[in-house]
Write a protein that binds this DNA or RNA. Structure first.
Lengths: 207, 207, 207, 207
DNA sequence: TACTAAGCGAGACGGTACGTCGCGTCTTCTT
DNA sequence: AAGAAGACGCGACGTACCGTCTCGCTTAGTA
């Protein structure tokens, strides 16, 4: 996650080269990320979180942060990535149940906190290609899981053969994300949302 | 839109009471919003837009801005609301075509610029209830149009009788919004997106 | 002069303790004071001198100024103190000549410029006890010199034995100051003022 | 004091010309001056007194003030002039006693408050010739009184024939002013100051 | 055991923007 | 026309962050 390492790998030989001098303190990495997450949870927005505050809360000098991350946004991206929980266990029997499980995994309290923090990063996200790649990398495992489930459904006949997989992923994740981050449509109840969404997606709107 | 008004309503009679003193200059409101939009279009992000620049470009003192909006974010919200284009004309024949028209209206270049700016404001939206209400108010006409189309479809039998209207709205808007603002799934082609989305929504995923 | 220092004295041992962190840059102190004096000489008044201008001229961030002085007035006080020239050399033979020399030292062009700037600060002097003490500290060496001269005069019989030294100091400095700063009585000629004042003080008004 | 009158005197005929429209409200003049004095007494300095505060306290629109005085300083000068008490009654027998009475008149509590306010105006005073003339006009009656007393002393032999009257005025007023405004020499007791000053002035410093 | 190189906490540094306040003017309606 | 009320353009204020730069000190590997 955090780069900007000294020493590291010698590109010509491919062998590890031991960096001279005092090595980085891994407790610092951890303390910084934890302080960031704590302040994000407390605070109001990404803008209202200051690097001085992170340094102070982590008991760390500011230079120690900037030695690891090039700027505030990079740190936030990493902190958010850390907040992402593990992928849910998929039963692997019914495609419908697996999709519900995937949506529900983004519907926990933890995920909602994550959603709020993510929203704080959107301004950077929409603008910086580098950040988009980082974000895609973080979410790729999840997208892949859903892709696999959908393909399985097509193969075993649970889903229509001509289903557009990528569009379907967007149709399942999109409503979930906007509702999570923006409370987009306040008239949709939270209770039972994953099931309702997946069932409506499967069933379609025609009679 | 902008509040913080002087004068207002006489509580006893309920009649409008003319505020004393020099009234606000409505040309200033307009100039400020226009300057904000112009700078948003030019600039990189909401953060890179400075109030001094807005004031200068609008030919207005900073106090004149802060007399109307309590802070930078509130101004941006209002500026973005102004960017929203008019509702599309709906043919009113096929429900499918009307839904496509509604989605396509958020798919123009103008709407994409709007989407980018909106993304910059999401941090505020997600935490400030006041801003959420403002945002709801801005989007309410659009949601209402879609609600009407869906109800018409249920009534005339184009859509299933047990369709959850609110959830359906989310299922159409959600993918559109995240794709517009976040380029959420880079594997979904832009070309023909509104038609593909609506058709998939209507058809469902089952064979 | 400028306070608000970090670090300081270890209370238990009474020894100086080195403050942690990067130490203040003494070149900044100097550059700020010099910029202030330069702008005071150029400008019209204390009010017309802006902190932004000082910072810009000194090639320094505003925070660097405010780290050293709590506000504009405190900076001006220090700048003015720096403008005070050195004490004049006293011949030490005739008390009368030494007093004339002391008065004349406040009668140079430099001293008049100093007087004008000081006048700009009087509002602060008159109400802030802290600033009064600062001012007293600045002027104490001069007052002491005059006190010494007067005492010598009493001892060697040049002055009357029952002379009130403190009142006499006020009687010599007071007219000089008001005339210098305020041009208090426009009917008193500038030419030969120090001699005339001292001689009149020595001689008295009685026949 | 306050000028900028409409109507007034026709310079060619010397006759009064009645101004058209609503006449000035003399209660406003009074309320403004009183509010100014009250705020000066309360507040910290001339700079910390705002025209908005004066207008508000006087229950008057700002334009009403600016119709009478061209700017803040002019108002302050007038307010200060109003604070000046009446000239003391002079017994007219002993020159020494009359001088003591004149000094003592500047030594009352009222005079000290006046001194503090005057100090607030010095920055303007030292810079603006117009203000100097106004100030000289205010103080001229006092200076004239002292001049008369000193001349009487010369004429009747109480004072030396070659006394420099203007310099003497400065020698009496100067110490009083600086001590009053600046607490210039804290070692000089307030008690009995007028008598001590006048006696020392008369007696001289030589044995 | 000494030397070199880098990491560390602390905090100062040059900038940039913030949101507030005051000045002196202008604009409304009312007296 | 003057009055109260208050908006206006301007410009300075003092604060908060950013990302960088010293300080003196610590912690490793190398000589």
């Amino acid at each position: 996650m955090n780069d900007m390492r000294t020493g590291g790998t010698d590109l010509e030989t491919g062998q590890e080269r031991k960096a001279p001098g005092r090595p980085r303190d891994s407790k610092a990495d951890q303390a910084i990320i934890e302080a960031t997450i704590a302040l994000l949870a407390t605070g109001q927005s990404a803008a209202s979180l200051s690097m001085d505050a992170v340094a102070s809360k982590a008991g760390v000098g500011k230079a120690t942060i900037y030695r690891r991350w090039p700027n505030k946004e990079a740190l936030l991206i990493d902190a958010v990535a850390t907040m992402k929980g593990p992928l849910p266990e998929l039963a692997g029997e019914s495609v419908r149940d697996d999709l519900v499980a995937l949506v529900a995994a983004n519907w926990t309290n933890r995920a909602k906190r994550y959603g709020k923090v993510t929203a704080c990063l959107l301004p950077q996200y929409t603008r910086d290609e580098e950040m988009q790649r980082v974000y895609q990398a973080i979410t790729e495992p999840r997208r892949n899981a859903m892709r696999t489930v959908l393909r399985r459904g097509i193969d075993n006949g649970e889903l229509r053969a001509d289903l557009d997989v990528e569009l379907s992923m967007l149709m399942i994740s999109g409503p979930s994300v906007v509702q999570n981050m923006l409370h987009f449509n306040p008239n949709v109840p939270e209770e039972g949302f994953p099931e309702a969404l997946v069932d409506a997606f499967l069933r379609g709107a025609r009679p």
